[in-house]
Design a protein around this nucleic acid. Structure first.
Length: 529
RNA sequence: GCGCUCGUAGCUCAACGGAUAGAGCAUUUGACUACGGAUCAAAAGGUUGCAGGUUCGAAUCCUGCCGAGCGCACCA
C-alpha cells in the first residue's frame, strides 16, 4: 500500500461526493491497469453502509457517492457538536510556543507587524483547535542601542531640539515626550544623563503599553510578554553560553567568544560576546530559545518578516548546538511584506520621514474584522498588496462581509422560525434523507470538509485555508438560500413539514460552522450586519 | 557575487502531484408585492515568466535562464 491514500471532496459534481486516486497509485505495484484495480475496489466499496454508488472514472479515479440519509446526517452531527465542530486532536499533547510580531518597542506597530498579528493570532487559535497546548508570546527588544536612541530622541523632542542622527522621528515621539514631561514636570531641570534615563525608562514603558493596547484592540492575545532585558538581569545569557560551551560548540578568537554555528549549516560562526565584553543580540536569542525550552515547550515557532530570513540558519544552529533537533524543536515561518497602495502608487514608509502606517490607522479605516480578514486570507509566502483607496471606499466589497452576511442570514432564518413557532424538532424526528436537493448536497459536502481544513491549516501552519474555506461555505449557503426550491420556513399559514424541519437543521449546522471558522480567524460572527 | 522567497485572468489573491487552473474586484447582461439584493443567475477574461526534465498525470517536483523582493556585522 502507498504511504498516503488521499480521499478528497470531488471538485466536480459529476464526480460524486468523494474521490480517491488510490487505484492509480496501486496500479504499478499490482501489475494491472489502474481501471482494473479500481473496479476491484469499487465492488468492495459499494457494499459499505451509507454508500450509494461507486464509479470508476477517467484514468482510474474512484468516485464515491453517499446516499442522502448518511450525507444529511452530518447536519445533526454539527448541531450537536456545536462550538466543538471542527476541533480535533491531531496535535494533541504537543506543547507549542508561538512567537510573533515582536516589533521593537521604539514606535507603534506598522502595517508589516499587523500582518503577523492577524496571521499569528489566528494560527494560535487554529493550533489550539487541533489539540495543541499553545503559548503565544511577544519578545520585547528592550535592550540594546535602539532603546538608547529612542530615549535620546524623546529627550531631544522634549527639549525642543532636533532628533539626533539615526534617531526616531514622528508625531508619536513628540506625544510620548510631552506625556513624560506632563507626568514628571521637573524632568527637564535634571542633568542630561539623568534626563535620558527617565526618558528611556518611562518612554519604553509607555510604548510597550501602547503596543499592548493596540494588540488587545486588534484581538491579538499574547500569553507572555517577554523582556529581553530580563534575560540579562537574571543571568540567563551567561548561563546559556555556559550550556552551549558544555556542548562543545563555543570557542574564543580575537578576544571575542564565538558559537560554531557553521557546524550546523550556518554561513559563518556567530559572536556571543564581543571583544569589548558586551554580549550580542545573538547571545540573547540563544538564551531566549533555551528559556522557551526550559518552560516545557517542545516546538518553538518563530514568525519572522522576510527581512529576517537570514536568521533561519543561525536560529537552527542554536537549536542544534544546544543538542536539540532543528528539524523538530524549532520552526521558522517567513512572511513576506505588505505593500500599500494609495492613489495607485506605492506608499513608501520610512520611520525617518515619520509617515508610517500604523495598526491603529488600519483599524480606523476598515475596522478590526475587515483588517484581520484581509491580512489572514492569503498565504504569507507572497507579498500582499493592499490598496488603501479600495479598502476604505469599497469597504463593503471586502469578502469578510460575504462570510458574515451568510452567518447573519442563517441567524435571521432561525429568528424568523422562532417567531413563527417553527421548531426543528428533536434529533430523532430529523429526517436527513430529505436533504437531497443538489444545492443541499453541495452545502452538506462543504460543511463536512471543515474538520479537515482546520487540521490541515494547523499542520501546515497556514491560517488562510480557513478563510478560503469560509468563502466557499458562504457561497454554497447563499446559493442554497437564494434558490426558490429550498425555502426553509413554511410560507404563510402553511403547515410545518418534515422538510422544513430538516432544512432548519441544515441552516443551524451552517451557522455553527461559519461561527466556528470565524472564531478561528478572530473575526466576529454578527447576527446582523 | 552568494543565499532565501516569489512570478497564476486587467487588479488583488486561491488551488494536499490529479479530472475542464478557481474566487472577489473591475467590465457586460439579467433577477426582489416569499426566509435581508452586503445576495443570486449568466457572459467575457489564462500558452500558470521562458526553456528543458521526472511522472500514467506538473501551476505544484528537478535543472537552467529572465524578472521582482529581501538578506549576506565583534548592529540590534
Amino acid at each position: 500500500m502507498p504511504e498516503h491514500v488521499t480521499v478528497e471532496r470531488s471538485k466536480n459534481r459529476d464526480h460524486g461526493d468523494y474521490a480517491t486516486n488510490v487505484a492509480l497509485q496501486l496500479a504499478k505495484r499490482a501489475g494491472k491497469p489502474p481501471r482494473e484495480v479500481a473496479a476491484v475496489l469499487a465492488a468492495r466499496l459499494t457494499a459499505v453502509d451509507g454508500v450509494a454508488s461507486v464509479d470508476v472514472a477517467g484514468p482510474g479515479f474512484l468516485n464515491v457517492t453517499l446516499d442522502a440519509a448518511s450525507a444529511g446526517a452530518l447536519a445533526r452531527t454539527i448541531v450537536e457538536g456545536g462550538a466543538a465542530y471542527g476541533r480535533g486532536d491531531s496535535l494533541q499533547g504537543l506543547k507549542i510556543n508561538l512567537e510573533f510580531v515582536s516589533a521593537n518597542p521604539t514606535g507603534p506597530i506598522h502595517i508589516g507587524g499587523v500582518r503577523w498579528a492577524a496571521v499569528g493570532d489566528s494560527l494560535g487559535r487554529i493550533l489550539r483547535a487541533a489539540g495543541a497546548d499553545v503559548s503565544t508570546e511577544y519578545y520585547i527588544n528592550d535592550a540594546g542601542v535602539q532603546i538608547d536612541k529612542f530615549g535620546a530622541s524623546l529627550m531631544a523632542s522634549a527639549n525642543g531640539r532636533p532628533v539626533p542622527e539615526d534617531g526616531y522621528v514622528g508625531e508619536y515621539i513628540n506625544d510620548i515626550a510631552a506625556e513624560i514631561v506632563a507626568a514628571e514636570p521637573d524632568v527637564l531641570t535634571k542633568p542630561e544623563d539623568e534626563q535620558k534615563k527617565v526618558f528611556t525608562a518611562v518612554g519604553l514603558r509607555l510604548m510597550v503599553a501602547e503596543i499592548q493596547r493596540s494588540m488587545e484592540e486588534f484581538g491579538a492575545h499574547f500569553d507572555v510578554w517577554f523582556s529581553e532585558k530580563s534575560l540579562h538581569a537574571s543571568g540567563a545569557v551567561e548561563k546559556a553560553i555556559e550550556r552551549l560551551r558544555a556542548q562543545g560548540h563555543v570557542y574564543d578568537d580575537g578576544g571575542a567568544i564565538w558559537l560554531r554555528t557553521t557546524d550546523f549549516g550556518d554561513d559563518k560562526d556567530r559572536v556571543l560576546i564581543k571583544s569589548d565584553g558586551e554580549t550580542t543580540y545573538f547571545a540573547s536569542d540563544a538564551a531566549y530559545y533555551l528559556d522557551k525550552r526550559d518552560r516545557g515547550n517542545e516546538v518553538c515557532v518563530y514568525m519572522l518578516g522576510a527581512d529576517h530570513h537570514g536568521y533561519v540558519g543561525r536560529l537552527k544552529a542554536i537549536v542544534a548546538c544546544a543538542g536539540d533537533d532543528p528539524e523538530h524543536n524549532i520552526e521558522v515561518l517567513i512572511g513576506q511584506f505588505v505593500k500599500m497602495l494609495r492613489g495607485g502608487e506605492e506608499v513608501r514608509m520610512s520611520k525617518r520621514a515619520g509617515n508610517i502606517i500604523t495598526i491603529d490607522d488600519v483599524v480606523e479605516w476598515i475596522g478590526v474584522d475587515a483588517a484581520r480578514y484581509s491580512l489572514a486570507r492569503s498565504s504569507t509566502d507572497s507579498t500582499l498588496t493592499l490598496d488603501i483607496d479600495l479598502l476604505t471606499s469599497a469597504a463593503r466589497e471586502n469578502p469578510v462581509y460575504y462570510v458574515q452576511y451568510a452567518h447573519a442570514r442563517t441567524c435571521s432564518i432561525m429568528k424568523n422560525a422562532a417567531a413563527a413557532g417553527v421548531d426543528k424538532g428533536s434529533a430523532d424526528q430529523f429526517k436527513p434523507e430529505l436533504l437531497s436537493h443538489e444545492l443541499e448536497s453541495i452545502l452538506l459536502g462543504v460543511l463536512g470538509e471543515f474538520p479537515q481544513v482546520v487540521a490541515k491549516s494547523a499542520e501546515w501552519r497556514e491560517p488562510h485555508h480557513v478563510a478560503r474555506y469560509l468563502e466557499q461555505l458562504a457561497g454554497a449557503y447563499h446559493r442554497f438560500n437564494d434558490s426558490n426550491d429550498n425555502r426553509v420556513l413554511p410560507i404563510g399559514d402553511a403547515e410545518t413539514t418534515d422538510l422544513n424541519r430538516a432544512r432548519l437543521w441544515l441552516v443551524e449546522a451552517t451557522r455553527t460552522t461559519i461561527a466556528n471558522g470565524l472564531e478561528l480567524l478572530g473575526v466576529s460572527a454578527p447576527e446582523r450586519l
